[in-house]
Amino acid sequence: MPQIICRDLVLGYDKKIVSRNISFEVNRGDYLCIVGDNGSGKSTLMKALLGLLPTMGGSIELSDGLSQSDIGYLPQQTEHQRDFPASVEEVVLSGCIGHKGFLPIYRMSDKIRAHKNLRKLSIDGLQKRPYSELSGGQQQRVLLARALCAADRMILMDEPVSGLDPAATLEMYRITESLNRDDGMTVIMISHDIDAAVRYATHILHLAHEPLFFGTKEDYIKSGAYRGAGEGGINDETDA
């Protein structure tokens, strides 16, 4: 059952094109990894999928009853958030902001949902702690819990493991795998770790301004894009 169908997408900022000819499909329950060099337009594609950036051509079609606000989002971490005064609880609850309610306060159901997600990611002991004083891995889980409060059918993750130590990285992959397998969530993850992408994902989209590859993991391993990426030399025309 397709949830997202992209056809001949052209993306960019201020009329400057970053990437073109992007076509791919995401089905319910897929685990899609988007790989590619710095500046190849991965985050840009994700912003377009979330409706944060207007497309310059082509189309993004959401089906299977999915709407833009059913997509959870784990952003690439920015410095801005790191010294923000906020407790873990405040951050996670803010995922519920889109739920319609008449009163300007969070409903009981929102609070329950927030706690469930805190427990699911085993950070329920941290809820009163300041977000800024957590480790990178813990912060990442807090943001994931927030995303899960916002949406439970599909999640977009922008480099969720960058800056994490090996143990925290492994834990993040394990959590993602469980969301995908046990909760049936569709996962779209941007990653620089091609080995992990090949290990966990069901599908791969390899970007270099134009897609070098889109298809299942099995086909990707046989493709030139994968072998090229392994040697680190196929898309050296990026501006990174």
Partner: peptide, 20 residues
Amino acid sequence: FYNKIFAVTFDENFASTTGM
């Protein structure tokens, strides 16, 4: 708008993905 103020100030992009 207390909750919205928090959400937008903390992370504007995320807030707009929730449809606010």
